[in-house]
Design a protein around this nucleic acid. Structure first.
Lengths: 342, 342
DNA sequence: CTGAAAGCGCTTACAG
DNA sequence: CTGAAAGCGCTTACAG
């Protein structure tokens, strides 16, 4: 491995000078710069990242903390799209991303502590928020640069980027109401995620404002996993007073729901209509195509990375909540009497 | 930030001793060990990762290199599942994963050079293989610990983990032949990926062994992207001598194909049968459910990580190709006359 | 414009 | 069983 000293020796200058050439220091003569750069090129010099980090106390690396059940995580295009947005910006800004997974809840804090307190990363991206997440408190306590995709309360040094999930769910529900539905169910996901809480709240709000009553049986706990979506759906169709439309927590669950409905010989949208969230690529490819709230997933990731890096570099706290706009994409699953060919 | 010196001072020992306690050195008295550990705990000591790396010349970090069009990458559950397998093992082995994306082809080599030659990572995972990939040559030249998911030729210091894609495709095609099909088409993906090349070869082999001729028009270039799958399909159905079955390069493309067929009022599997690859979660949820070759994606990732870390730690070269077995999962899309309810 | 020196936080022969 | 010293490869005041 060729070091700064080797270059210095060959170039006949001091290591300090080589270092200054590398960092484009202003007070270095054109001549030395050119000579040293040529020698670096020739000898295949590559600066040792660790040594640099040790003295600069910065790593140009961000940690992406995967929500605990990494199992489910990658089942969903959603996280892929989020990662894509994060990577797009951070790569451009010259930051590397460290993927931090945890094997167990206890292990999660240890892993983060090791990375954060061990000086391995300059900032942290949290991909989802649970209510009262101890990880968030810990990061806030250390005042460590952190961006959370979702929301949290009582930590004003944690940057958050979020969808207005209450409004998004209000919009989705209202769309179904406008289609003439009065009995609308809701398939919820992992209960303690803030996203689940908020989307459920938006649904209730829309129902209430429209003067519609909600039968508690219409609200079914599912998981993001497809199988559970299926189970949830079998359950809901057996209710005597069953809904004619469903708001589903996300697209993958919606696929499971539709699959189950089909096996039970129900037609979507005619027997039961359906709207979901995230607008992942497959929602367009499903049959029928799924109406879904596009939450600008890529944009969420991109913005998160952007705000975090600004916080790190300029110590700018972008405070409070940063909301990415959403928009409902209406497709076949929520519109009866659609023109069909053939 | 509390350092080894701070601990040493408080404990009344030398920094060397503290260091030895941390690394569980054998010749340290029980008493000192206990005392020092207590103080570390009390003062909230966390070893500086960079300093440690600088002297040990090892980082306990692996780079995952994302195939250039990261755009497409995350469109596919497949890569998510692969990542999941990689992470599962590497986390367990105490390695961190660095996600390396490249904005442009030229940039890709630079990024890797920086990470590899700058001593930032101990090993590299390549997620897919193109033919004659310069990145592979570069890594091989430096004899840098590398595992490639896919295959390559002429570099015996590159560990590879792969599916026997020729056989997998042979099996898929043969399955359709056994269902009585004689005219079978093939929807290919990105052409210069080894996986595309191999799956096409397996298809040809099966057709040939069955004494069936292939109409070149039946082989359609698509992309992994769904839209292209759709386009490819519209094209193929307009051929006079059109196929009655299709082998499709992967599940996401297959979804696009099925979507298009449905819009053109063709029934799968009755008008045209279909088999694809990867067996991602949605292939089971689609209507009809898609027959797909399960290539043990998680296992591919897990094994890749395992072999790479073994190579790093024990300098064991696992040589040649490591093949993960596959198995065809038959579902509705390739079986006519399936019993349907209702 | 450039160099000598100190130091980032750790590890590890060497000596005792 | 433990300490003093040198060193990993870099940066950055300080001095000239």
């Amino acid at each position: 491995m060729v070091t700064i000293k080797d270059i210095a020796k060959v170039a006949g200058v001091s290591p300090s000078t080589v270092s200054r050439v590398i960092s484009n220091h202003s007070r270095i003569s054109k001549a030395t710069t050119v000579k040293v750069k040529a020698i670096m090129e020739e000898m295949g010099y590559h600066p040792n990242v660790m040594a640099k980090s040790l003295v600069s106390k910065t790593t140009r690396t961000l940690a992406i903390v995967l929500p605990r059940p990494a199992e489910e995580l990658f089942q969903d295009f959603f996280f892929g799209e989020l990662l894509r947005g994060i990577l797009a910006h951070s790569t451009r800004a010259g930051y590397d991303m460290l993927l931090a997974a945890a094997t167990s809840p206890a292990d999660e804090s240890d892993t983060i502590a090791r990375l954060v307190l061990g000086g391995r990363v300059d900032g942290v991206v949290l991909l989802s928020s649970r209510q009262n997440d101890p990880l968030v408190s810990m990061l806030a306590k250390h005042d460590f640069p952190t961006v959370l995709i979702g929301r949290t309360e009582g930590h004003d040094n944690i940057i958050t980027v979020d969808t207005d999930n209450i409004l998004a769910s209000f919009d989705a529900t209202t769309h179904l109401i406008n289609q003439g539905h009065k009995k609308i169910g809701f398939i919820i996901g992992i209960p303690n995620l803030t996203v689940s809480v908020d989307r459920l709240a938006g649904y209730h709000k829309a129902m209430e404002e429209a003067g519609l009553t909600v039968n508690p049986e219409w609200i079914v706990d599912a998981e993001f996993l497809q199988q559970s979506g299926f189970r949830a759906m079998s359950f809901i169709m057996d209710i005597a007073d069953r809904p004619t439309a469903l708001v589903v927590i996300d697209d993958v669950t919606a696929l499971g729901v539709m699959r189950g409905l089909k096996e039970l010989d129900y037609n979507v949208p005619n027997d039961i209509s359906l709207v979901s969230f995230n607008n992942i690529a497959v929602s367009e490819l499903a049959s029928p195509a799924i109406s879904s709230v596009d939450i600008g997933t890529y944009q969420l990731g991109y913005t998160a990375s952007h705000l975090l890096i600004r916080r790190i570099q300029e110590n700018l706290n972008t405070g409070a909540r940063n909301i990415i706009p959403h928009r409902l994409v209406v497709r076949e699953s929520s519109i009866k009497d659609i023109n069909k060919r053939g």
